[in-house]
């Protein structure tokens, strides 16, 4: 078991304070972003070239590829920046997307407050760029990577995934990201690495919700190595064609669509490869309510919320509930990882 002491993570350790506080650079970048963004609006040849024609979800075929680095303009970062050069996939074909408005105003992100509408309001001054992620633990060698380099690590893909919250509601979100497996390949974990731990930013200045000790900050989540390497698992950097809004976990968050939403750690600053199963923030907060796996499972009840059915956000007042599917409907892709496991015990 990994016992994390408070001294483990200093914000200064993650992003040098000098860089963080360098307003001039930030303003410069924002200015550059505006110009580049305007240019992007005028001509976006890549997006036009990758129009979706998918029909079946299946294994999530890639349709239209745009990995010729030469023609991708340098990404600029900031609120509402369009992401240039991502390819569409067949994931989520036929699903009705949840409205952008709903996805960005109804968030569980306790770093910015415990009410659903608070993250959108309280994250306005959050600065997701520049950003550095450190790679630690059972790896060939500790290293860091900037968010710019993560964008270039692998071709970005749009993945339309269902998201099921443990509270009994769900959305369909067009994420943009890269397979976590690509990032792990770059991180070069050694053979002792059995689990991956994700650590979110701890910074009371930028995240006012952290002044309240509702969870053991920083927010921590984890995956088993095979779960992390599963093709379904992505590091999302955007949604609806734009860079992630702050309230959705900018600049980078985990997305595991067959697990309850709280597994998706946001604003990740540290990825640590470990031998023993990490203890997540929610496991510490309620060990009998939140397990390590947190797989969507209509057959395992939660003490507070019905898990056999869910409300799809955007359905209006009279839509009723829909049946929750095993592994949120992704059994084909992830079921084999849990063969022989008692999912009642390993909830």
């Amino acid at each position: 078991m990994i016992i994390q002491t408070k001294s483990d993570i200093f914000p200064s350790e993650i992003t040098p304070k000098s860089v963080f506080d360098n307003r001039r650079e930030f303003i410069q970048k924002a200015g550059f972003g505006l110009i580049a963004g305007a240019a992007g609006l005028l001509s976006n040849p890549l997006k036009a070239a990758t129009v979706s024609s998918g029909t079946t979800e299946g294994a999530g075929r890639l349709i239209g590829r745009a990995n010729t680095q030469a023609i991708i303009k340098p990404q600029s970062f900031g609120a509402h920046q369009k992401i240039s050069g991502y390819s569409k996939t067949t994931y989520g074909a036929g699903e009705k997307l949840t409205a952008y408005e709903d996805i960005t105003t109804y968030n569980n992100y306790y770093e910015f407050g415990t009410d659903k509408d608070e993250p959108a309001k309280n994250s306005r001054l959050f600065k997701p760029y520049p950003w550095t992620v450190s790679i630690e633990g059972e790896v060939k060698k500790n290293k860091t990577i900037s968010i710019e380099d993560i964008y270039k690590l692998a071709p970005l893909e749009e993945r339309i995934y269902r998201m099921r919250c443990v509270e009994g509601w769900s959305m369909v979100i067009p994420w943009i990201g890269l397979p976590l497996a690509q990032l792990i390949k770059w991180a070069e974990p050694n053979s002792n690495a059995k689990y991956v731990e994700f650590v979110s930013l701890a910074d009371k200045q930028q995240m006012p919700g952290q002044n309240l000790q509702v969870l053991d900050w920083p927010y921590t989540e984890g995956l088993r190595m095979d779960e992390a390497m599963n093709p379904l698992t992505i590091m999302a950097v955007g949604l609806y064609g734009e860079q992630l809004p702050n309230q959705n976990g900018a600049p980078m968050r985990l997305v595991t669509p067959w697990k309850y939403g709280f597994k998706g750690a946001k604003a990740i600053v540290k990825i640590r490869f470990v031998e023993k199963m990490p203890v997540s923030s929610w496991m510490k907060a309620g060990p009998n309510e939140y397990g390590f796996y947190a797989n969507v499972n209509p057959n395992v009840e939660h003490p507070r919320w019905t898990q056999s059915s869910e409300k799809r956000i955007g359905g209006g007042l009279f839509a009723g509930r829909i049946k929750t599917q095993m592994f949120n409907g992704y059994t084909e892709q992830v079921g084999q990882m849990y063969a022989g496991m008692d999912l009642r015990k390993n909830f």
Binding site: A99, E101, T105, K116, G314, L317
Partner: peptide, 13 residues
């Protein structure tokens, strides 16, 4: 709020 379609993303809740 209902007529103004302003009952948040999860109006029932």
């Amino acid at each position: 709020l209902g007529f103004a379609d302003n009952l948040t993303a999860n109006p029932i809740e």
